[in-house]
Nucleic acid binder design. Structure first.
Length: 612
DNA sequence: TGGTTCGTTGAAGAG
DNA sequence: CCTCTTCAACGAACC
């Protein structure tokens, strides 16, 4: 009998250590093993991915490829520039593949894609083998053990996990890898249909992502940022399994830090070094296995002589939040990613809601500009020009470095939604999707729902102040001075509220608080914007709005939300920026059309390009 | 995994 | 030594 010929399809599992799927591929004792990556057009054009995450991904691919080559110099990560649904069936045929092996993916898009791929493989007579390795427990089994319901608390998640059983110990990296087979590409390559490139704002030159299937030199090399036409990354954070394991080892070595870690007691204002592990992007790309992380931490905790911290605030507790969000996503699918149609989400009439495709019931890339004021606030928030130094510092750190502390995410998310602008959490989610190097669909959605008090968390009266909160951690304002350098010479007394500094002090500090952030200099003096609103006034209005929305008590799947008649339940005074027009879904679509016409394409980035 | 206000309590210092 | 004042520290109640 002939031996298996296997494609190992790498996706979000860019590592060799603790990979159950890679192990099962090797256990097949294949005659040849092709480690491949295919460039999914969904990620290239439909997902929002800024240069920092692109670079991080390329880092992970390069590190993995060189690790593969160390085990077998004839092998590497073979990178192909074609979408998986068109490419894989051709490879099955050309390379006489018997088995396709991959790690089970988690988000709604990837799961849908994998069902399609499995069907194509079945039609080609190729056996598909998958294993769970991205989560501590299989998300579908967590849902099953949670009574078939979405996991909405960490308690439920732990209880469901206990019913499944112990978290498996990590397995070691393989000691050898089989040769790949012949790399003939005796077929026509197919370029993807592109209706829009969401990442066009990040391209400085023409996009050659799909120019040639095996790359410009025909050697299956990992592309460069230049080949992808992307502007250079600005982050100091670099990806790859080698760095991930080194970072983990350094954390574990500090037993006290590892065993007594409590998330709420870590400073969001700390930088170089930051107060938390910064392992999240490694978990996202799979350059670190979550089980490896879990057990290396748990072993330290179990041997620790003092009092160790416990979930949810401990290090392992952070992994359990991840499990909860993954399982909720597994249960709710695409509807998890939006309020509309989502039974677990409270309905709150935010500004700038997503435009919904009436056919699918899913959000589109467009949103409704029901308030020009709110649209301006969103723009100023995104680019760190709100006039609140703490908020602006965090947003600029996010844009430059692609990573911000978890509590900093809380602060800016609260500010954009229920604690300031009253803007839809789905707008904030998109900005995080674009800029975070650790962007994980389920975690991003879950955290935005949490912070906006849309789901998971309901105590909307707990509201982060952009002044008192950072002051608790950083009275001197070192963090603000780092990321909002125009304020570097401000006295600590005014660093979080520079508009209160007398003009003489402003001049002495070399920066005037003036304007809306569209200008940066006034003669010799730098400019920092005036606060875009009175925070306390806005906070009170938002809380009033939240109280009303909670008392109306609609969920995302309520018929009144679906057909738009919800607006009859809210009166003029119930909305922080005045009345939202009553619109049925169809009317809303027309309005978006008008807005797009009026504002060019109507996207946020066009508005910003004009300003810059 | 909040902020603010207001009341209580007790330490510390002035006289 | 007593009395009065101040204020930090804490906790409850409310948003």
């Amino acid at each position: 009998m002939s031996k298996p010929r296997v494609i190992y399809w790498f996706r979000t599992d860019l590592r060799l250590h603790d990979s159950p799927a890679l192990k099962v591929a090797l256990d097949l004792e294949p005659e040849c093993l092709y480690p491949i990556w295919t460039w999914d057009p969904h990620y290239v054009y439909n997902a929002r991915v800024g240069p920092n995450r692109w670079q991080y991904l390329l880092d992970c691919q390069n590190d993995l490829s060189s690790s593969i080559s160390k085990l077998n110099p004839r092998s590497k990560l073979f990178l192909m520039r074609e979408g998986p649904t068109t490419l894989l069936p051709k490879l099955f045929n050309s390379w006489k593949i018997t088995h396709l092996v991959y790690e089970k993916d988690t988000d709604a898009y990837a799961r849908q894609r994998d069902i399609e791929i499995a069907k194509l493989a079945h039609e080609a007579g190729v056996e598909v083998v998958t294993r769970v390795g991205r989560t501590l427990w299989d998300s579908d089994r967590l849902v099953e053990k949670n009574g078939g319901k979405a996991t909405m608390t960490q308690k439920q998640t732990i209880a469901a996990g206990d019913k499944i059983g112990n978290i498996p110990r990590p397995i070691p990296a393989p000691k050898f890898l089989p040769d790949p087979g012949e790399l003939n590409l005796d077929f026509e390559s197919q370029k993807p249909d592109i209706d829009a490139d969401l990442n066009a704002p990040h391209r400085s030159s023409s996009d050659k992502s799909y120019a040639k299937i095996a790359g410009p030199n025909g050697d299956f090399a990992i592309p460069t940022m230049e080949e992808l036409g992307l502007t250079p990354a600005t982050t100091p954070h670099r990806g790859g399994e080698t760095i991930a394991l080194k970072t983990l080892a350094a954390i574990i070595k500090d037993e006290k830090y590892t065993a007594t870690f409590e998330k709420p007691n870590t400073a969001p204002t700390a930088f170089e070094p930051q107060a938390t592990t910064l392992l999240s992007p490694h978990l996202h790309f799979g350059s670190l296995s979550c089980r490896e992380f879990y057990w290396r931490v748990q072993d330290v905790v179990d041997n620790y002589k003092g009092k160790a911290s416990q979930p949810p605030t401990s290090l392992t507790g952070q992994l359990l939040f991840r499990e909860m969000y993954f399982a909720a996503h597994a249960k709710l699918g695409f509807s998890f990613e939006q309020t509309y149609g989502n039974p677990e989400c409270k309905f709150i009439p935010w500004h700038l809601p997503s435009k919904i495709d009436p056919k699918s019931g899913l959000k589109t890339r467009e949103y409704i500009v029901d308030s020009a004021q709110a649209d301006e606030w969103l723009n100023r928030w995104k680019y760190g020009r709100t006039g609140f130094p703490w908020i602006d510092a965090v947003m600029r750190q996010l844009r430059q470095e692609g990573w911000i502390h978890h509590l900093a995410r809380h602060a800016v998310a609260c500010f954009l939604t229920r604690g300031g602008c009253y803007i839809d959490w789905e707008r904030g989610l998109e900005v995080f999707e674009e800029w975070l190097i650790d962007h994980e669909p389920a975690c991003n959605v879950g955290n935005w729902q949490w912070l906006s008090c849309t789901a998971f968390f309901t105590q909307f009266f707990r509201c982060y102040s952009p002044i008192a909160f950072p002051q608790k951690w950083d009275r001197e304002g070192k963090f603000v001075r780092r990321y909002v350098p125009e304020l570097v010479h401000y006295p600590a007394k005014y660093i979080y509220e520079p508009w209160k500094a007398p003009i003489a002090d402003q001049k002495k500090a070399g920066c005037l608080v003036k304007g809306d952030g569209s200008e940066f200099e006034d003669g010799q003096l730098k400019l920092y914007p005036k606060p875009m609103f009175d925070f306390n006034e806005r906070k009170d209005l938002c809380m009033k709005g939240m109280k009303k929305a909670y008392s109306v008590g609609l969920r995302g799947n309520d018929p009144k939300v679906i057909d738009g008649s919800w607006s009859a339940l809210f009166s003029d005074g119930d909305h922080p920026l005045g009345r939202v027009e009553q619109k049925t879904r169809v009317d809303v679509d027309e309005k978006v059309g008008r807005d797009r016409k009026r504002r060019g394409q109507g996207t946020l980035d066009n508005v910003i390009t004009k300003k810059e």
